[in-house]
């Protein structure tokens, strides 16, 4: 699973960082950093974070060409 965050939409609500601190991280107070390739054990939680994003900036999918 891969994750992409539309950083033009991201407003720093940080709901994803609360829910999956292993994948999403705040750099300073507002800048979001994330691990694009989601570890297998974190898939369900990343999906929860994508739904919880107040501005729907998190896109989740399989990398192109994946089985």
């Amino acid at each position: 699973m891969q994750v992409v965050v539309d950083l033009n939409r991201c407003q720093g609500y940080a709901q994803c960082v609360f829910l999956v601190p292993e994948v999403f991280e705040l750099h300073g107070e507002e800048a979001l950093m994330y691990t694009p390739r989601v570890p297998d054990g974190q898939r369900e939680r990343v999906l929860r974070a994508a739904v919880a994003c107040p501005v729907r900036a998190i896109l989740v999918g399989e990398p192109a060409g994946a089985e």
């Binding site: 609360f18 829910l19 601190p21």
Partner: peptide, 11 residues
């Protein structure tokens, strides 16, 4: 309570 200083609190 939360990030960036306490990111794991709620989790």
């Amino acid at each position: 309570f939360g990030p960036p200083h306490s990111p794991g609190r709620i989790d």
